[in-house]
């Protein structure tokens, strides 16, 4: 193991079933502070299901999820971000009618609390929080080169920009762990290279750990210290990029695909 400290995120025997279909079976996985861990596998291997269990959209039928040593298998979905876990989605889940800035303000919902009366009467406390939230959102926008889209409604933005807005929205909550679901989907070679650099930079700058689901092997191999491979919901291999690449079970699972 590269990191001697306690894991930030730990999955113990995570199991998820839909009806009779086993989506994830007895999965053990840990992400240590500062790490970028890759989760790969063929389509339908259960990668997104793992994310949805961590985000608490699904309640696993077995196993445990620990974050920072605290169990979070039973907390409601909206408390996940309060614990310090933010995520992006494979097909982008933005608030489509809002502007980019407003999406980043919603992204701070958990970190900048407020109440109906304070909001409606525009009390000084609410105004102060609002001003702070806008300033922080603008900082993140600038960092991700999104400032030109600040007041544009996101539904009209190109897919690649929407993905970046979503990344910004995750970052704006100051997470300690980022779950990125296929951040490079739909990007060309040039954009992919840029994205890889960006993710590395964000890890440094925000001191955030990352769990990454990605189909683009160049991205995964280039970014991750450790990779876990899922096939039919089971972990068939785990190790450094080099180890995983030469693992016979992985080659079999990806039969025909170049790893």
């Amino acid at each position: 193991m590269s990191a001697p400290s306690a894991p930030l995120l730990e999955l113990r025997g995570l199991t998820m079933r839909f009806g009779g279909l086993v989506a994830v079976l007895d999965l053990d996985l840990a992400v240590y502070p500062g790490e970028i861990v890759g989760l790969i596998g063929p389509n339908g291997a259960g990668k997104t299901t793992v994310f949805n269990c961590i985000s608490r959209f699904y309640t696993p039928v077995g196993g445990e999820i620990l974050f920072d040593g605290q169990p979070m298998t039973r907390i409601p979905a909206y408390q996940v971000v309060r614990r310090g876990i933010a995520r992006t989605f494979q097909n982008v889940e933005l608030c489509r009618s809002m502007t980019t800035l407003d999406n980043l303000l919603v992204g701070q919902h958990a970190t900048k609390p407020g109440g109906l009366l304070g909001d409606g009467l525009r009390l000084p406390g609410a105004r102060r929080r609002e001003a702070k939230a806008v300033a922080w959102a603008e900082e993140i926008l600038a960092l991700l080169d999104l400032t030109p889209y600040r007041d544009r409604v996101v539904a009209g933005l190109p897919f690649g920009v929407q993905k970046r807005v979503e990344l910004a929205r995750a970052l704006v909550s100051r997470p300690r762990l980022l779950l990125l679901d296929e951040p490079a989907a739909g990007a060309d070679t040039h954009e992919t290279a840029e994205l890889t650099g960006l993710i590395r930079r964000l890890r440094e700058q925000f001191d955030v750990s990352i769990l990454l689901v990605e189909h683009d092997m160049a991205v995964v191999m280039g970014l991750c210290q450790r990779i876990a491979v899922l096939d039919f919901g089971r972990k068939i291999a785990e190790g450094t990029p080099a180890e995983v690449r030469s693992h016979p079970a992985v080659i079999e699972a990806y039969l025909g695909e170049k790893v």
Binding site: F57, C95, S97, M98, V106, A110, T111, R129
Partner: peptide
């Protein structure tokens, strides 16, 4: 404000709203 954006977030996507910490 904060509250109104939470409303709109629920309208646009309950999934996204929850992921951002909005208590439905």
């Amino acid at each position: 404000s904060h509250t109104g954006r939470a409303f709109i977030a629920i309208r646009d996507s309950e999934i996204a709203a929850q992921a951002m910490g909005v208590n439905l």
